[in-house]
C-alpha cells in the first residue's frame, strides 16, 4: 500500500484512540460532578417542600420552621460553593465532554439557594450567615480566578460569611434579572450587605471587614 496512505491510517488510528481516551476521562469527570449536583438539586427540592408545607399548614413565622430552614441552609451552602470550584475545574480541563445541562442545573440550584436566604431573612428574621454575592465571567477572566481564590480564603477564615457565585454571561432570565438589579457591568464584582458594590479584584481583609467576619 502507498506509504502515505498507510501512515495516514495509522495516524488516524492513534488520534482516534487518543480522542476516545480523552472522552472517557472527560465523562468520568462529568459523572463525578453529576452525583454532587443532583444531590444539591434534591436538597433545594427538600427546602422547597418545607416552604410549601409551611404555607399549606402552619404559621410561616414558626420557630420550628425557621430552625429547620437555617440548618438546611448551612449544609447546602458548604456543598454549593465547593461545587462551584469543581465545576470551573471541569470546565477548564474538559475537552470533549458535554455538560451544559449540568451547568444549568447548578446555576439554577445556586440561585434557588440564594432566594431561600432572602426568604429566611424575611420570614424568620434569621441570618445564619452573611451572604456575599460574587459575579464572574464564563469567558477567560484571569482576574476572576484571582478573586475566586481570595473569596475561598475569606470563606475558610470566616465561618459566618458565605459566597454566592453567579456567572455574568450565562443566558438565564433569573440571572439577568439579578445582574440588572445590582447594575453589574464588569467582572469580577462583589456585593456585600446589599449596598457595598466592589468592582475589580478586592483584598481579602477588605472583604472580611465589610462583611463583618467573625473568626
Amino acid at each position: 500500500m502507498n506509504i502515505y496512505i498507510k501512515a495516514a491510517i495509522i495516524t488516524l488510528g492513534i488520534f482516534l484512540a487518543g480522542m476516545y481516551a480523552i472522552k472517557s476521562v472527560d465523562e468520568q469527570r462529568i459523572e463525578a460532578l453529576r452525583a454532587d449536583i443532583d444531590s444539591s438539586v434534591l436538597d433545594t427540592e427538600a427546602t422547597r417542600l418545607l416552604f410549601l408545607y409551611q404555607d399549606a399548614t402552619g404559621d410561616p413565622n414558626s420557630t420550628a420552621f425557621c430552625r429547620a430552614l437555617t440548618e438546611m441552609s448551612k449544609n447546602q451552602m458548604e456543598r454549593t460553593f465547593k461545587l462551584a470550584t469543581q465545576l470551573s475545574l471541569a470546565e477548564n480541563n474538559n475537552v470533549l465532554g458535554d455538560y451544559e445541562m449540568l451547568k444549568r442545573k447548578y446555576y439554577l440550584t445556586n440561585f434557588e439557594l440564594y432566594i431561600y436566604q432572602k426568604q429566611l431573612e424575611r420570614s424568620c428574621g434569621a441570618k445564619p450567615f452573611e451572604p456575599v454575592l460574587y459575579f464572574y465571567s464564563l469567558k477567560p477572566c484571569p482576574q476572576c480566578i484571582v478573586q475566586g481564590q481570595v473569596l475561598d480564603r475569606v470563606v475558610s477564615e470566616c465561618p459566618n460569611v458565605r459566597v454566592f457565585a453567579f456567572p455574568s454571561d450565562y443566558p438565564e432570565p433569573v440571572l439577568t434579572a439579578l445582574l440588572s438589579r445590582y447594575g453589574i457591568s464588569s467582572v469580577p464584582t462583589i456585593i456585600i450587605k446589599e449596598h457595598f458594590k466592589l468592582e475589580g479584584p478586592q483584598e481579602k481583609e477588605k472583604i472580611k471587614e465589610l462583611a463583618g467576619c467573625m473568626q
Binding site: Q143, Q147, P201, Q202, E203, K204
Partner: peptide, 17 residues
C-alpha cells in the same frame, strides 16, 4: 492575557495557591 491575572494578584496583595 494572563498578565491581568498577575496584576490582580498584586492588587490583592496575596500569593496564588
Amino acid at each position: 492575557s494572563n498578565l491581568s491575572g498577575i496584576a490582580a494578584w498584586l492588587a490583592v496583595k496575596e500569593l496564588p495557591t
